[in-house]
Design a protein around this nucleic acid. Structure first.
Length: 870
RNA sequence: GCCGGUGUGGCGGAAUUGGUAGACGCAGCAGACUCAAAAUCUGCCAUGGGCAACCAUGUGUCGGUUCGACUCCGACCACCGGCACCA
């Protein structure tokens, strides 16, 4: 054993050993319980960022821990390799997305290997390779056959200058990121997957996922958004024909308070009314400008304009004006809403703004006073449930009674009924982009949309193109587009849209089980490994990716391709890694600065006071803590840290800094602290081995004879019990590491050169090495050998605490009087409650605080504390 | 705007089921070792009062439940994630 801890040597040796013994290759071993530990695969953006390091270290700790606990563990890795950044890089550098992507993959793979993750690289999956994405295409065709995939129009962001569809991310303040042109919404044909058919099951099954965080289940449930209400039809005549404008509401009890209806700008009624109304046509055009992003629409000023058309109130027969509202979403329900200004806040302000009547039809239950006449401002109680008033035959009914009565009356008139409405929309998978999986369809003038026959799959994406920002380069590549119709043989055109990259990531975890199968999408090996026992990834994926994966897995299950319906049994959502960001905006363009490009002034609390750029001395803006991202120039390169401190110190620091589900604020301080701990651990083992020799404990644990020896052994085994629980159940690696550090501090103070003392030191060091093995696998691999063991640590069984070592004879119990600790008493561990009280009353400080006052109550919480009230 | 989350010393965090607030680490201060530096080791380290024992205050803000609240309830504030074409 070397005297000095040299991470570079130790890590090279350990990694060479794992490689020689092919230690990371997962086996379908029926004799052991399986454990599938999956981390969300990275987008190959260039280099690993700290979020990846955090994610994959968590996965590696769990994998190695489960392996030591006797499981056959699969920990795979792959690349979410299609996507927009490759096209952006291509435009910036003139390099095809494929080359850029494969170069990045090669670099990032080396980085992952240098961090010592126990990944089975024989199962590597890359989504931009035909042998992977052919199965996207194959399953898409199966969905088409079953009507799960279908075609309809969808709304996209249109850049009128570049004549191209933009992603939401490429729209900045309503303008195209490259052209600066005002963005328009545009409707184009797209392919959709009927995820809404599964809405009820996707919602119900959330209750069967106890291994998922509550917050993720809540977010998904709200996203699916089941609401039970009433569909209400407002009849109207148009060109002599009778039509019905359908709206959905959860407040059918307020139907007699309707004073207007509002439709989306894209609604047929709006289009009709605009024909002879240039002012309205202009307003509709205005509504169509701006982005398709829901968040921006929600923040817009609510605007409207009357169509001049009226509908009939289905119950009162009143004439109700129809407005166009920029806040009405064509995608929710039927693109129309009823307006009840008296009982809906948004309708209230809309009515105030445009002088529409406000009719109160609900009185709050507890309020018997008069109904407000024409209030200036909205009050929360207006929106509460109550009793119907001014509602004719419904007067006096409560919420549920009124809803039932209104629904029944509407049904009788054939103008509505109770209805379940979902917030969830079908999944649009068409992207007007080059770097993605081609949608396997052929457009024939006579046969229509014709699926590519299975034997012609995969439709291969040509890899050499370089997009220029003016639309999809595939559409300009005649050799790709020109083809013959598989049905009639006539010349035809190939679909040039590609699939949403969420398709790629919706089933990659299946393919890890059988990446080499070129005959089928999945096979029996998938049924051995699935479901994923532990999934780990960023909280930002809590809704979309996880919901799509759940949906896709159900489709595969229905087709008999996998035998699970839920892909992920347990989910750990790690928090974001944050860093400070600095930027300067000139001429509307924002530039982000690296910290090393700045002089940063901080106050005594290390809070940034000001910052100036080194190149021009001018101030830059401090944006505070935000997620590390490439665009913000605030990422930290793990490679530099690994080179300086070693992989183990980086891993230790990432696990110690924060609990895995919390955000992690990056700081350079602390990696050094982790390295210090590693050096100290190394030195303690070295000194012990030098002094006492390496004599493995074996099956006969040391027998303590002194109190100090007993205490030392108890500390070691109590720590083991805690660390086992922290890693195995709680997943709080930070507290596990803290406990080991504490044990190291205790061991440093244990100075005992006797035979028993030396054996206890040996045993404690062995336990420390075993407990840290999943977290810092390289150094512990070497230290295990130094302690005299010849078996590989990676497969050594996880130790169990010795119950005999944990027994305590006496306890120190805090004594509370009126909720404040006033003394501590030392008592035998098996004391009766009354004896503990007597011991406490004998304490001078207790006597002082009681001072003859009678005890109102007292209680001994066994082993924890004694409390009394006077 | 809607949905979800977070808030504890100078800093990251600990307190697992309502039971000792501040474990462990970072930074800082003091000392030891050294010709010196680095490395290492020891001690101190919420605020106010006190020589000390100890006392008071204290977990974003305001209020409540309880013998006892960081933990439960209500209202509010700030920040973070998601909002369907970033991944």
């Amino acid at each position: 054993m070397q005297e000095r801890y040299d991470p570079a040597t130790v890590e090279t040796q350990a990694q060479a050993f794992w490689e020689e013994t092919r230690a990371f290759e997962a086996k379908e071993d029926p004799s052991r319980p399986k454990y599938y530990c999956l981390s969300m695969f990275p987008y190959p953006s260039g280099r690993l960022h700290m979020g990846h390091v955090r994610n994959y270290t968590i996965g590696d700790v769990i994998s190695r821990f489960m392996r030591m606990n006797g499981h056959s563990v699969l920990q795979p890795m792959g690349w979410d390799a299609f996507g927009l950044p490759a096209e952006n890089a291509a435009m910036a550098n003139g390099v095809p997305p494929a080359k850029w992507t494969y170069d990045n993959i090669a670099y990032m793979k080396r980085q992952l290997q240098s961090l010592g993750f126990a990944i089975d690289w024989t199962r590597e999956v890359t989504t931009c390779k035909p042998e992977y994405y052919r199965w996207n295409q194959w399953l898409f065709l199966r969905m088409l056959e079953r009507g799960i995939a279908y075609k309809k129009t969808g709304v996209v962001n249109w850049d009128p200058v570049d004549q191209t569809v933009l992603a939401n991310e490429q729209v900045i303040d309503g303008r195209g990121w490259r052209t600066g042109a005002l963005i328009e919404k545009r409707e184009i044909p797209m392919y959709y997957l009927r995820i809404t058919d599964q809405a009820q099951e996707l919602l119900d099954a959330l209750n069967e996922l106890p291994g998922w965080p509550e917050r993720v289940r809540t977010m998904q449930a709200n996203w699916i958004g089941k609401s039970e209400g009433v569909r209400i039809g407002f009849p109207y005549e148009l060109n002599g024909e009778r039509h019905v404008l359908n709206v959905f509401t959860t407040r059918a009890d307020t139907v007699m308070g309707v004073t207007f209806c509002a439709v989306a700008a894209e609604h047929p009624l709006a289009t009709h009314a605009a024909k002879n109304n240039p002012e309205l046509a202009a307003f509709i055009e205005e509504c169509k400008r701006g982005t398709a992003m829901e968040a921006e629409i929600a923040l817009m000023e609510k605007k409207g304009m009357p169509t001049g058309l009226f509908v009939e109130h289905p119950l009162s027969g009143e004439k109700i004006p129809v407005w166009v509202g920029n806040y009405v979403l064509m995608t929710y329900g039927e693109g129309a809403v009823m307006g009840v200004p008296a009982h809906d806040e948004r309708d209230f302000y809309f009515a105030k703004k445009y002088g529409l009547p406000i009719k109160f039809v609900i009185r709050p239950l507890e309020n018997e006073g008069p109904v407000p006449d024409s209030p200036e401002d909205w009050r929360p109680e207006f929106g509460e449930y109550g009793v119907c008033i001014n509602s004719g035959k419904y007067d006096g009914l409560t919420y549920q009674q009124a809803v039932d009565a209104v629904a029944a009356d509407l049904k009788a008139k054939n103008l509505g009924d109770k209805q379940v409405q979902w917030r969830l929309r079908d999944w649009g998978i068409s992207r007007q982009r080059y770097w993605g999986c081609p949608i396997p369809l052929i457009h024939c003038a006579s046969c229509g949309d014709v699926p590519v026959p299975d034997e012609d799959l995969p439709v291969i994406l040509p890899e050499g193109l370089v997009p220029d920002g003016s639309g999809n380069p595939l559409a300009k590549l005649e050799s790709f587009v020109k083809c013959t119709c598989p049905k009639c043989g006539a010349p035809a055109r190939r679909e040039t849209d590609t699939m949403d990259t969420f398709v790629d990531s919706s089933w990659y975890f299946v393919r890890y089980a059988c990446p080499d199968n070129d005959k089928a999408m999945s096979d029996e090996r998938a049924n051995y490994w699935l479901p994923v026992d532990q999934y780990i990834g960023g909280i930002e994926h809590a809704i979309l990716h996880l919901l799509y994966s759940r949906f896709w897995t159900r489709v595969m299950n229905d087709l008999g391709l996998v035998n699970v319906r839920e892909p992920f049994k347990n989910l750990l959502t790690q928090g974001m890694v944050l860093n400070e960001a600095f930027s300067r905006t000139t001429d509307g363009k924002r530039r982000y600065y690296w910290a090393h490009e700045l002089d940063i002034q901080r106050d005594a609390h290390r809070v940034v006071v000001s910052a100036t750029a080194k190149d021009d001395g001018q101030p830059v803006d401090y944006e505070g803590w935000t997620t590390m991202s490439k665009s913000k120039n605030n990422g930290v390169d793990p490679q530099q840290l690994v080179a300086e401190y070693g992989a183990d110190s980086v891993r230790l620091f990432m696990m110690f800094k924060s609990p895995p589900e919390d955000t992690l604020e990056w700081s350079d301080d602390g990696v050094e602290g982790a390295a210090r701990f590693m050096r100290r651990l190394w030195r303690v083992v070295y000194e012990h081995v030098q002094k006492n020799g390496a004599r493995p404990t074996g099956s006969n644990p040391p027998v303590p004879v002194t109190d100090a020896q007993r205490a030392m052994r108890r500390a070691a085994h109590a720590t083991l019990a805690k660390v086992t629980d922290d890693i195995g159940r709680r997943r709080t690696f930070n507290t596990a590491i803290a406990a080991v550090m504490e044990l190291m501090n205790t061991l440093s103070k244990f100075d005992d050169a006797s035979e028993q003392g030396r054996a206890i030191v040996q045993e404690t060091l062995e336990l420390i090495v075993l407990m840290l093995a999943p977290i810092v696998p390289h150094a512990t691999h070497a230290l295990w050998q130094a302690l005299g063991h010849s078996d590989p640590l990676i497969d050594h069984p996880w130790p169990k605490p010795d119950p005999g070592a944990l027994v305590q004879d006496t306890l120190e119990i805090p004594v509370q009087i009126n909720g404040k600790v006033r003394a501590r008493v030392t008592i035998p561990a098996d004391s009766a409650d009354q004896d503990v009280l007597n011991a406490a009353l004998a304490e001078p400080n207790v006597a002082k605080w009681i001072e003859g006052k009678p005890l109102r109550m007292w209680k001994y919480v066994k082993g924890k504390l004694l409390t009394m009230a006077v």
